[in-house]
Computed example of a mutant assay.
Amino acid sequence: MGRIKRSIGMALAAGAVLASATACGGHAAASTADAKSSPKASAKAGTTAGASASPSPTRPSGPPLLLDTITPESGSTVGVAMPISVEFTHAVSSSARAAIERHLKVTTSVPVTGAWHWFSDTRVDWRPEKFWPSGTRVTLNADLDGVTDGNGRYGTRSYQHSFTIGSDFETTVSVPDHTMKVTRNGSVVRTMAIDAGSPDFPSWDGTMAVMDKQREVRMTSCSVGITCDKGNPNFYDLTLPWDVQLTTSGTYVHYSTGDPYPGHSYGSHGCVHLSLSDAEWFYNNVEPGDPVTISGSPRGNVAGDNGYADFNVSWSQWLADSATGRQTTSAS
């Protein structure tokens, strides 16, 4: 089922247009936002102090190194599984990644051990080794002025994002048992009946941080490449309520009119279905960054960059794709 992507990250490029995302598509692949912007010129004025004075240093020549998004949005409160995700508009060379990581400084109100990890040449995420401690205040200082991407582009400014980690609100979904359990700060607050994907359109396994939520989303089989044929039994075109997005490729937790009483069968093309009352409750209580862990599906684990499934990557693999390795944050 399909929709237009709404990122909780801050769009940094003027006129940025976010690519479409998908919903409940069992065979869909992750998509990545692609945005361009017009560079904003900036220069440092030189000074003179007599005939022998030398000009002050100037910014290196070349097009600007620009950021597409920083997630999460500055000033937000997010769940314990939310990474810091920085996306560049153009590719960063492998040779420049260590320098860029050193200019992406993470500080926290309490020391936290974590690391940067490059999912691609345009996306780098920082996450703790384990979930964030609740109540942690986090600041990213991206001091990229004059920093090169290794491909002829140089930063022209700095960015600062600060956010807070909320309560430890965790959700676990058992596909074979058709159940979903929610805990807050370690105590079970609700257990609900669910239906997940079918053998032909299975749900993803693994831990996914909630990306977004909307009261209504239009979902279509055509948008995820299942079928555009209205005569096909897998065709759907529905606007459904209480939608919580888990992946870029379109996994949601939501209510479906086609499966109003879940808890006993396969009922979706990859999403997790709740009853109407349970879906509304979950929507009203869950926040971006809260972890949802699905198990028992035959599809396998979701890729870490399909949304914010960073904790689906093992810590050793996380460090393997870091240019500067493990670090412990200093107090902000």
Rank of each mutant, 00 (worst) to 15 (best):
T251I: 13
T251C: 03
Y252K: 02
Y252M: 04
Y252S: 02
Y252A: 02
Y252D: 13
V253R: 02
V253L: 15
V253H: 02
V253W: 02
V253Q: 01
H254K: 11
Y255C: 02
Y255V: 07
S256W: 09
T257Q: 15
T257K: 11
T257M: 03
T257L: 11
G258S: 14
G258M: 13
D259A: 10
D259M: 08
P260R: 03
Y261K: 15
Y261C: 00
P262R: 07
G263L: 13
G263A: 14
G263H: 07
G263I: 02
H264V: 05
H264E: 11
H264F: 08
H264Y: 10
H264L: 03
S265T: 15
S265W: 01
S265V: 05
Y266P: 01
Y266S: 15
H269T: 06
H269G: 13
H269P: 09
G270I: 06
G270T: 04
G270E: 12
C271M: 13
V272S: 09
V272C: 12
H273G: 02
H273C: 03
L274W: 08
S275F: 09
S277K: 09
S277Y: 04
S277M: 02
S277T: 13
D278Q: 06
D278L: 11
E280K: 15
E280P: 00
W281Q: 03
F282P: 03
F282R: 06
Y283H: 15
Y283E: 04
N285E: 10
N285K: 11
